[in-house]
Design a protein around this nucleic acid. Structure first.
Lengths: 113, 113
DNA sequence: CAGCATCCAGTGGGATACTG
DNA sequence: CAGTATCCCACTGGATGCTG
């Protein structure tokens, strides 16, 4: 049993999966893989996500040190989200899931690029 | 947008992640990696899972062709769950998450073997 | 031994409106 | 542009008891 930040995990894998739990985190990370993105850009490409949830997930990813947030002191505000090294390695693994799906479900199109 | 079995997915990755969504599926698959297991065995090693949820997840994994179920005609009943080839490949990726966690959180013990 | 039926609680996420 | 604040619903999973 692992205790981390007030939460319980039955094993290390359970703990590891926590970083990408839910419908959106993996998708967000993939969108940040090639290059950093701004908030609105991210919302646009992550089709279907609500502003509220995007914000929540970005906060969680930041506090987990998977991404970093860069705020430019401009008006209107400009914010960029980048993957950390730790986040890049995680995202590489996530992309393997995508490849797995491509292999076993080749007829499903992949518009998530 | 992908439609599959009455459900909607925003992209292929979202679809791929569906196979291991929730707290338990990844853990279960890892436990089946080395060798097939019986129901009770699986419940014992997957510490904390309820019988109901284990059953639900096994059914989902079976209908997704990630595992196969072998029923021996004995009394008392004997059932074994095996990974398919598709499932093995998926589980290999899952194990990389574990390695990622070991790398970045080396001080957390790993009792999930 | 393996698995089904209920009932219930917590939470992840949707919709909408507002702000520095 | 990049958030916050509410309100609400659906779904995942927990607890317990029963059965071929």
């Amino acid at each position: 049993m692992i205790l981390y930040k007030e939460k319980k995990y039955v094993c290390l894998l359970d703990f590891a999966m926590e970083f990408i739990r839910g419908k959106w985190k993996a998708v967000i990370l993939c969108h940040l893989y090639k290059e950093p993105k701004r908030f609105l850009e991210l919302q646009r490409v992550t089709k279907g996500i609500s502003q509220k949830v995007l914000n929540e997930k970005l906060k969680e990813l930041e506090s987990d040190e998977i991404i970093t947030k860069i705020v430019y002191a401009e008006i209107p505000p400009k914010v960029e989200y980048h993957l950390t090294e730790k986040g890049k390695e995680l995202t590489k693994i996530i992309k393997e899931f995508e490849n797995w799906a491509v292999k076993y479900y080749p007829y499903l199109e992949n518009d998530c690029k």
